[in-house]
Design a protein around this nucleic acid. Structure first.
Length: 503
RNA sequence: GGCGCAUUCGUCUAGCGGCCUAGGACGCGUCCCUCUCAAGGACGAGAUCACGGGUUCGAAUCCCGUAUGCGCUACCA
């Protein structure tokens, strides 16, 4: 019943106005999986309710800005199929979509708030701010700006101005009362106004802080739902205050839990492999990644896990977003990627694995690879690897001429060199007289040979496997040999015999 | 320190007052299948639902407190 009520509320909120959501990354580096998961919620939400997905670049921190970060971001979004409807590369009616190109809007809003008495110029130096922070920390007082410039007289302002100080604009937070907002995931959240300090809206370089830019843009871009990580909950009351002072209607808020590292702390670069693009390089499939990421912090029911993009979109609902931080479990991703890999058609798999083989196979292997040959190998490796870049290490023996292994590998447990020698010699003889190297014929021939030699099938197959693949675990023998072909197999058996002689 | 949010198997999660002696998945173990390896199938171990009080005939589910974790506390986002 409780759930139904919430659902009703959500549906109504959605009906009220067209759904417009935005993903608003700050171009400070490679996009990590946590960022992208937020974008995914935006995308799914937009598609689910026939809305618009806006990409907006929050490049308001000149110092942290990283060259190429926007391209990385767009690359990552595109790889996952998170296509945006408005934004860089797409245009739209609410641009520009780079905040650095919208500076006049923020300035205008900030000055309006100053004129209304909701904000003020602050001339405090960084040194002073640093000093009060230290004092506050030492005396364990509440931290935050001490409102030194809140009630400056016109004369005082003129004096500071004359000193050539570029002021910041701070919001005048009410000293009393509470600010409350409703979050669709977390419910009602209330803050005492006296725990919030007079935050900076406009920096002295003329750039806005996140808080101001966010409010101005979400309003002017007609954003209906703000979807962002839980870390923003504490900032939301500031945003509410600005909406109110500016006379805007606030959007709906959907905060979602964060992705955490192994130490349960907010995911960041020090947690290692967190950049989304790294998963592409490691050979994960975008559809698996999409499915997996959607399940971090969201679930459909008590059992469904493998879902197509369409199913994920059609079944998405806020009510099913969880509230607790999720740890990125790579082992489960590996499993899920394997599921998706096995579901691919051979042709599709071949096309996807080809570049990975090109890249990771040893340098002596001639390039470009023969696509027809790869497509014969593909079905043998497809069910046995979990990521595309496992392919090269797993299937190298199909490509490499000189196999490296110890002679002792040929002699399995409960086997003697004599038996192995006889088995391989017998195989060499039988196989060389074979006209076709068909998988069924091979099996038939070799099983018969084992029988004739008076050994178990495995006692023949195992050394043969090592001889032809240089490993004890490999794809099924006869299929493998059929793909390798007669000449290569016989050569490898000869090499194995030589190794046995030498030992 | 202040404020906010959270807390169910190792991990991701189901659970919305009786269906819960808590379900599923990954991983792990045993077995089956089998030329090895995967895949697949069967079975199993694994959670006193953070703890303590309350409310109720009945609580993992509601309330209060405590603990712990995380987030915010920047002219970062």
């Amino acid at each position: 019943m409780y759930l139904e009520k919430r659902q009703e509320i959500t549906e109504r909120l959605i009906m009220d106005k067209p759904v417009r959501v935005r993903f608003a990354p700050s171009p400070t580096g490679r996009p990590h999986v946590g960022n992208i998961r937020t974008a995914m919620f935006d995308y799914i939400m937009a598609r689910r309710f026939n809305g618009t997905f806006v990409l907006r670049i929050e490049d308001t921190d000149v110092e942290r800005k990283v060259e190429g970060a926007v391209e990385y971001m767009m690359d990552a979004l595109s790889w996952l199929g998170l296509e945006w409807d408005e934004g860089p590369g797409k245009g739209g009616d609410y641009g520009p979509y780079y905040q650095s190109q919208r500076l006049h809007l923020y300035k205008e809003a900030a000055e309006k708030l100053v004129a209304q008495g909701n904000a003020y110029y602050c001339y405090c130096s960084e040194e002073r701010l640093e000093k009060i922070r230290k004092e506050q920390a030492a005396s364990k007082q509440m931290s935050g700006y001490d409102r030194h410039c809140r009630e400056l007289t016109a004369k005082q302002r003129a004096e500071y101005q004359a000193q050539g100080i570029n002021p910041v604009i701070r919001f005048k937070v009410p000293l009393e009362g509470q600010t409350m907002f409703h979050d669709i995931v977390y419910g009602d959240v209330t803050f005492e106004n006296n725990t919030i300090d007079d935050f900076v809206m406009l920096k002295s370089d003329g750039y806005p802080t996140y808080h101001l830019a966010n409010v101005v843009d979400d309003h002017s871009m007609k954003i209906s739902h703000v979807i962002r990580a839980e870390e923003w909950i504490s900032s939301t009351p500031r945003h509410m205050m600005m909406y109110k002072a500016l006379g805007y209607d606030p959007p709906e808020y959907v905060h979602h839990p964060m992705l955490v590292g192994a130490d349960r702390a907010k995911l960041s670069k020090r947690h290692g492999s967190v950049s989304l693009l790294e998963y592409r390089e490691k050979g994960y499939l975008p559809e698996a990644m999409f499915n997996f990421l959607a399940l971090m912090g969201w679930s459909l029911d008590d059992k469904t896990e493998i879902m197509t993009r369409r199913q994920l979109i059609d079944n998405f609902s806020f009510e099913r977003i969880g509230k607790t931080g999720a740890f990125f479990n790579i082992e489960k991703l590996d499993w899920m990627n394997g599921v998706y890999m096995r579901a691919l058609s051979v042709e599709d798999f071949t096309n996807r694995v080809l570049p990975f083989l090109e890249k990771y196979l040893p340098p002596e292997v001639e390039r470009p690879l023969d696509a027809a040959y790869v497509s014969r190998i593909a079905p043998l490796i497809q069910p046995r690897i979990n990521t595309l870049n496992d392919a090269a290490a797993y299937a190298d023996f199909f490509f490499v001429d000189k196999l490296e292994y110890e002679a002792s590998m040929l002699i399995g447990k409960k086997m003697t060199p004599e038996v192995v020698l006889a088995a391989l010699k017998g195989a060499e003889e039988k196989l060389s007289s074979l006209e076709s190297f068909d998988q069924n014929l091979l099996e038939d021939t070799l099983r018969r040979l084992a029988e004739a030699l008076g050994i178990k099938a495995g006692q023949l197959f195992n050394p043969l496997r090592v001889a032809t693949t240089a490993r004890e675990a490999a794809p099924p023998l006869f299929e493998t040999m059929a793909v390798l072909g007669k000449e290569r197999c016989l050569n490898r058996i000869k090499t194995a015999l030589a190794k046995l002689d030498g030992s």
